[in-house]
Amino acid sequence: MRVLLSCLLVAILGLPAIAAPWIQEAPSGSIEIEGYHPDKNLFLERDSKFTVLVKGVDATRLRVIYRPTSKVEALEDIGEIQGGKIVWTPSQAGLAKLEAFVLVEVKDEKGDTQTRPKVLVSRVVSIKPGEGFPLGLLIMALAGAILFFGAFASIRALLRS
């Protein structure tokens, strides 16, 4: 009986630890964007308005990181999510990460209280450049031309010599 009770006690005390990985996991929310279906070639476009739907989490704000994890990443606060919706106009093309978050108070190393965002759900999206001068295309063509015409001319000269 004592053994059984001990086991029960250990199980009860250990329950939070066992459950911790599931408890700590981010709630299974999602970010959806109206009119964004990459599989059907419907992408986001720079300078166009889109409605972002944040589902399954109680996030209060939405922000975007353009070119995340790069040396030129740019953070932009989109604003407050109202009724699970917010309108967003992408200002840059390329890969971007949308993050829905709540502001929480945390203590720093000195013991001071600071407000920090706690991201509840995120999604990586692709944004087309839309209208405007296709500088990327120009650089792509120029770089390719230098490399391949250069290689071709060099091989020709080499085989001639």
């Binding site: 890969l95 692709s126 296709p134």
Partner: peptide
């Protein structure tokens, strides 16, 4: 691929501020 050509261009789309880094 859907959006593939835009992705190609995106590789070359310049962010000039990096030149000062």
């Amino acid at each position: 691929l859907p959006g593939g050509f835009d992705g190609m261009q995106n590789l070359f789309a310049p962010e000039p501020e990096v030149l000062f880094n």
